[in-house]
Design a protein around this nucleic acid. Sequence first.
DNA 1: CCCTGATTCGC
DNA 2: GCGAATCAGG
Length: 253
Amino acid sequence: MDWTEESISLLRALWQEGLSTAEIGRRMSVTKNAVVGKAHRLSLPPRPSPIRKIIDAGSTGLSPVSVASPPRPRRGAADIASAAALDAAETVAPSPAPVPAPRPVSVAPAATVVPPVAAPVAASVAAPAANEAVASAPTETVAAPADRVPSSPVAEASVVPLRKPVPPDASEADTGTARAEAPPSRPVPERAPLRAVSAEPRRRGLTCCWPLGEPGTKEFRFCGDEPVPGKPYCAEHAALAYVKIRDRRDSVA
DNA sequence: CCCTGATTCGC
DNA sequence: GCGAATCAGG
């Protein structure tokens, strides 16, 4: 694994999203050890670990992290769906070599003591729904980008702080008519929107909700392009968003 | 058993 | 610096 700035930043993003190291590893095609190791070296903030040797004492009763049951996606309905999608369209992803596909991931960060800076803002929605993958055929535009689906079934019960849905339309308006289709070739979704209920994903948007820019900044906006039918993203971003599922575990490349 | 994240340590 | 091996709690 060559830790490019890109991959590192992706790692950071996913890390702070609260994804498990194993999950991050799967997404980045590396082992969880690699992820943990790197994170450690980067001095990324520790995450609620199942192992807690040192209990923080003292603290004003404010526990540093949410422990209990961290977001553990596991196989949920969404996953099933994704699996199905995968089966249906087993377009194998052209093995993303070094560069993983960034995607607006979404996972409930359980309760984080420190709200991400952008939290209030990030609000977006996005939440690519797995379910939809099934419904739509892979786009023809981009070279068949396989069809993985974001996981993150997130427990709706989580203490999710609540997100303000930002209608994609707004984003469109926001961007005015300017819709650069491939702005900074690197949409690293830093924080993602929490996924909403998988119930009715298709309500959102008539526009691609791929996040562009840093959430919380002025530049932040959504792609806004026309989405691929059934998916929340335009063809271009759908290609980035849906990647081949990896086998379970750390089977890394 | 499974999961998890943290640490160690040879490379 | 990297990450497999190992550790250790749930």
